[in-house]
């Protein structure tokens, strides 16, 4: 008799090619089941319960749709959803309106080193921690000594810039983080500053796939810069614009770090900077209303889905159909 270990080895050598791939991909499915699927199911179950977390699972009490009913009639929830949507628009839209022309300019005839220097400086904020940059902006937005207000005060009074900035005088110094009306613009500035470079890099990468001959042929036909941007670059970039806008929607609907730091974790005066993510965090971890927080995360999920669908209908369908034609 041959030894059982040898038999096992030979059997395994034959079998392993068949079973190895399942073994190799299993970590993803095990981890996804444990840390992805289970939490989602759990949060769905939780959203139909009242639970304070401190008491252990047996204190969970079934209350049906009560959490959803509460949230849908809760002014704070609607306010936070409204804040999130406003921030999505006022920080998201400028990102793309700045990134598109910027990428277009960077794609023109520039010395390669200079092009890289520009894109690297635009990109760097994207890889720095949102907490760090929000703290830095916290000092920039300071009421009396913040550099932004000092700059605006200078611009509003200096002879050469008065004609453009003079109207600001009545509003200065702006209480960026202390007054409800200014909080959203302040947050939007930070988010815009953090993200526009990322979108610029995406659009630049997209533009670089357009053959130079396309632009040169257009030039021969008498196209000017504006034509190149509006009639060549933009249409060809549509699939990337769709992708980038989708990313902005998904990211900004879950906006947490910047408003959390800038408002000291509260949402600011009048809760004007309280996003859904912040309200969710406070509901779960300050007020330990785990059921309400779980229901809120589902309502947020649904609103992200609705917005993504709208984006698909507005931008994506045409963009992807165009790609299919080519």
């Amino acid at each position: 008799m041959s030894n059982p270990l040898g038999l096992w080895r030979r059997w395994w050598a034959r079998r392993q090619q068949r079973y190895a791939p399942y073994l190799f991909i299993s970590p993803f499915y095990i981890l996804f089941f444990a840390f992805g699927l289970f939490p989602i199911g759990f949060s769905l179950v939780l959203s139909f319960h009242s639970w304070r977390a401190v008491g252990g699972l047996e204190t969970m009490r079934w209350i049906g749709l009560e959490n959803y009913r509460f949230l849908l009639t809760d002014p704070w929830f609607w306010q936070s959803l409204g804040n999130t949507l406003v921030l999505l628009v006022i920080s998201g839209l400028p990102q793309h309106l700045i990134a598109l022309p910027l990428a277009f300019l960077l794609n023109r005839r520039l010395p390669p080193r200079l092009r890289h220097l520009y894109s690297a400086s635009y990109f760097f904020p994207y890889i720095t921690s949102t907490v760090a940059i929000s703290l830095v902006f916290g000092t920039i937005f300071g009421l009396h000594y913040g550099i932004l207000n000092q700059l605006l005060e200078y611009l509003a009074s200096a002879p050469w810039s008065r004609w453009l900035f003079g109207w600001l005088e009545g509003y200065l110094p702006i209480n960026w983080l202390g007054k409800a009306v200014y909080i959203k613009p302040a947050i939007a500035i930070v988010v815009l500053w953090h993200w526009f470079g990322w979108n610029t890099i995406l659009y630049l990468a997209g533009l670089q796939t357009i053959p130079r001959e396309v632009f040169e042929a257009a030039k021969v036909d008498g196209a000017n810069v504006w034509h190149e941007f509006w009639h060549i670059s933009l249409p060809l970039l549509r699939p990337i614009i769709f992708f980038a806008v989708t990313m902005t929607i998904i990211g900004n609907m879950q906006l947490f770090d910047e408003p959390f730091i800038l408002t000291g974790g509260t949402g600011g005066p009048g809760r004007a900077g309280m996003t859904v993510a912040i309200y969710l965090y406070r509901t779960a971890f300050e007020w330990t209303q785990m059921g309400v927080a779980a229901a809120m995360s589902w309502l947020l999920f649904v609103s992200i889905g609705v917005l993504s669908l709208l984006n698909y209908l507005l931008l994506g369908r045409a963009a992807l159909a165009r790609r299919g034609e080519e």
Binding site: F35, G36, F38, P39, I40, F42, S43, L46, I250, M253, Q254, F256, A277, L280, Y281, A284, M290, A293, A294, S297, W298, L300, F301, I304
Partner: peptide, 10 residues
């Protein structure tokens, strides 16, 4: 799946 969906169970 948006990460925020699982934050409470996490």
């Amino acid at each position: 799946i948006p990460p925020l969906l699982g934050i409470v169970p996490y």
